[in-house]
């Protein structure tokens, strides 16, 4: 598995962050589930391990909430796949969640302090 980091180095996703990441991934247009998973992994430089089973349940949850919509379509390599796209509601939610997350990350960063001091 050349492109993937050893399992130990990966961080299991924090509760609630998967939804945010999914919404973010869909900003650039419709994607299918497998594409979303790959993209999260690649963008996070393989830091995140996306449990595919959880991903699909999260997708379903977001769809039920009306933040994303889904449609069956055909992938680049001509395979049938279910494509998800952001709804207006989803876009608003993304903005809200992203700002929440940034504040949280900053706050945690402040508390933890610069990286060198830890060692």
């Amino acid at each position: 598995m050349p492109t993937q980091k050893p399992e130990d180095d990966r961080i299991a996703l924090l509760q609630g962050t998967l939804d945010l990441l999914i919404l973010r991934m869909l900003v650039f247009g419709p994607r299918h589930g497998q594409g979303i998973a790959r993209h999260i992994q690649q963008t996070s430089e393989d830091t995140f391990l996306v449990d595919h089973g959880s991903l699909y349940l999260a997708l379903q949850r977001l769809e039920d909430k009306g933040w994303i919509s889904a449609e069956w379509g055909v992938s680049d390599n001509n395979r049938k796949a279910r494509f998800y796209s952001l709804t207006d509601e989803g876009r608003t939610q993304l903005a809200v969640k992203a700002s929440q997350w940034r504040r949280l990350a900053r706050a945690i960063g402040l508390i933890l302090g610069p990286e060198e001091q830890e060692a």
Binding site: P2, R38, H52, Y56, N77, R79
Partner: peptide, 24 residues
């Protein structure tokens, strides 16, 4: 959404993923 539809999606995922891995 029916359970079948969900199963169908998982099957599609597995195939897409296998395809990607094969390319790697």
């Amino acid at each position: 959404r029916s359970v079948n539809d969900f199963q169908e999606e998982i099957r599609a995922h597995l195939e897409l993923e296998a395809e990607a891995l094969k390319q790697e």
